[in-house]
Simulated assay, not measured.
Amino acid sequence: MRDIFTLKRLMLALAALLLVLLGLVAQEFRLFERAWFNLQQWQQADQLDPNSLRLGDYEVEIEAKVIAGLDDDVSALTYDPDRNSLFTVTNQKAQLIELSLDGELLRRIDLHGFGDAEAVEYISKGLYVITDERRQRLIKVQIDDDTRELHADVKQQLSLSLGSTGNKGFEGLAYDAAGQRLFVAKERDPMRIFEIHGFPHRDPDQPFAVHVLDDQQRDAGLFVRDLSSLQFDERSGHLLALSDESRLVLELNTQGKPISSLSLLRGRNGLTQSVPQGEGIAMDHQGVLYLVSEPNLFYRFSKPAQP
Rank of each mutant, 00 (worst) to 15 (best):
F232I: 02
G179V: 03
M191K: 15
I109H: 05
V66W: 01
A305Y: 08
L150R: 13
D215W: 01
L127H: 08
A35L: 11
L86Y: 02
G198F: 10
A220V: 04
D102A: 09
G56R: 10
F199Y: 09
A16K: 04
R192I: 03
D189T: 12
F32Y: 12
Y122H: 14
D71P: 00
L48K: 14
L48D: 07
Q231K: 11
L222N: 09
D116K: 05
Y58Q: 11
L70W: 06
S274F: 06
E118D: 12
G179Y: 04
Q157S: 12
E294R: 15
F298W: 14
A282E: 08
L31K: 08
L96G: 14
M11V: 07
R135D: 15
D73R: 08
S274A: 14
V74K: 01
A68Y: 11
V288C: 00
H285D: 13
Q136M: 10
R148H: 01
K125N: 10
A26Q: 06
Q255W: 02
A178E: 12
N84D: 14
L264S: 09
A241K: 00
S164M: 09
K65I: 09
Y58F: 15
V154C: 02
D145M: 06
D49N: 12
L158T: 03
V120L: 06
G267W: 03
L22S: 04
P276E: 15
A64C: 02
E195C: 11
V249Y: 08
D71V: 11
L138V: 04
I196F: 13
Q156P: 01
L86S: 02
L53R: 13
D102G: 13
S261N: 05
D145S: 13
A305N: 06
P200D: 10
A178N: 09
F114A: 13
G126E: 08
Q43H: 04
F5L: 14
D3G: 02
L252T: 04
R135N: 15
R137K: 14
N253D: 15
D72S: 06
E104S: 06
R247N: 15
L86I: 01
L150H: 12
E279S: 07
V210M: 04
K303Q: 15
G126Y: 01
E187R: 13
R268P: 00
L53Q: 09
I196N: 14
S229R: 03
L86F: 02
D189V: 14
L213E: 07
D3S: 14
G69R: 09
Q142W: 06
L250C: 09
G126M: 01
E59A: 05
D102H: 08
G172R: 09
L242C: 03
L127T: 14
L96D: 12
Q40C: 07
E63T: 05
F298L: 12
V210D: 10
K257S: 10
D73A: 13
N91W: 11
S293D: 08
V212P: 10
G163R: 11
D132M: 05
D205K: 07
A35K: 05
A209W: 00
